[in-house]
Design a binder for these strands. Sequence first.
DNA 1: GACATATATTCTTATATAGGAATACACTAG
DNA 2: CTAGTGTATTCCTATATAAGAATATATGTC
Lengths: 119, 119
Amino acid sequence: MARSPTTSDVFNAVAELQRRRILELLVDGEKSVNQIAEVLAFRQPQTSKHLNVLKEVGLVTVRSDAQQRLYRLNPEGIKQIYDWSKTFERHWNESLDRLEAYLEELQQQVQRKDNHEQP
Amino acid sequence: MARSPTTSDVFNAVAELQRRRILELLVDGEKSVNQIAEVLAFRQPQTSKHLNVLKEVGLVTVRSDAQQRLYRLNPEGIKQIYDWSKTFERHWNESLDRLEAYLEELQQQVQRKDNHEQP
DNA sequence: GACATATATTCTTATATAGGAATACACTAG
DNA sequence: CTAGTGTATTCCTATATAAGAATATATGTC
């Protein structure tokens, strides 16, 4: 089986850095394809393709103004990612966890050294 | 250019649903490869491969206990995703934005209808 | 209608999976 | 050392990009 399509969900869509950059840019408000392409130094067809992926997963919406297509951020999609990541929040907030992990790391390092020096 | 490797960053690593499921499972604490494989109904080699991807991007750590490899969640990696998505937080909190988007959507639908019925 | 501007689509290519199958490797018990 | 348990690795295949190049489509202007 191959990797899931980029349009299968928001996680796959934002895996691509260039698409995350587009979303970050759209925070300032709606922009045309050429505006996006210019700011991010993309070619126009690539920009259209990325925008189409973002549109398919609902991360942006489009409206037409003459020949232009004005793309706007739809933050609801990003909220899905936020909600998922937030379920792990208490784990990085617990400093005790961090300390445990650190000690564990040290133990492993010592163990590895022992294994190498006395095989 | 092909898609970025799954190991290039946390965003690419968690794009795969099965890897997100592994992370969710590890919230309960460290688990061995076979334990993970059993709970999620994966085959062992697939489990090892997914865990390796998660390890490479720093989303999990491993320690050895006899033949077993005990994988533990490293929440710092998920925090990267949380932090990124959180920068959009105010947008989905602004109900005004939502209203505007909704109106825009309606306008588009009306426009499309007009275009179809009077071409 | 002819031409310009803005955007989308098609085609091609190099690359990277994800899962299955088979096998190799690591460590333990006796 | 031999068998058993747990895990990692290799090989294979079908699939899916992402970017470049070329082209098609849509809309506005004159």
